[in-house]
């Protein structure tokens, strides 16, 4: 139930501050999502959507951390082998 999935904001229609509705694309599926809680999100951004409401905008810079962490700690000499 806490399933939240990332989707790309295609367009936004702000009817009122609490009714800021976006069309969000999940894979090939389009859905209407309330984006009132992520005022910084704009078309092209990815948002994390839970039960029809966006709870967070995905930070593209931070998204790389998972790919870079091993190198970082590898360089720090904490694990045996730094991957190429």
């Amino acid at each position: 139930m806490c399933l939240a999935i990332p989707g790309r904001v295609e367009s936004i229609d702000e009817r009122s501050p609490l009714e800021r509705m976006a069309i969000v694309k999940f894979g090939t599926v389009l859905r209407e999502v309330n984006v009132a809680f992520v005022p910084e999100a704009e078309p092209g951004d990815y948002v994390l959507v839970h039960v029809g409401v966006a709870i967070s905008r995905i930070d593209e810079e931070e998204a790389k951390t998972v790919f870079e962490y091993l190198e970082q700690i590898g360089e720090a000499g904490d694990i045996g082998e730094a991957p190429p």
Binding site: M1, C2, L18, E19, N34, F37, H50, V53, I55
Partner: peptide
């Protein structure tokens, strides 16, 4: 309206919308 903190904003938004 069941859920953890993740779902609370959506549930609060529903109540607030119904009130408005």
């Amino acid at each position: 309206a069941v859920g953890f903190e993740t779902t609370a904003p959506a549930n609060a938004l529903a109540v607030r919308t119904a009130a408005d």
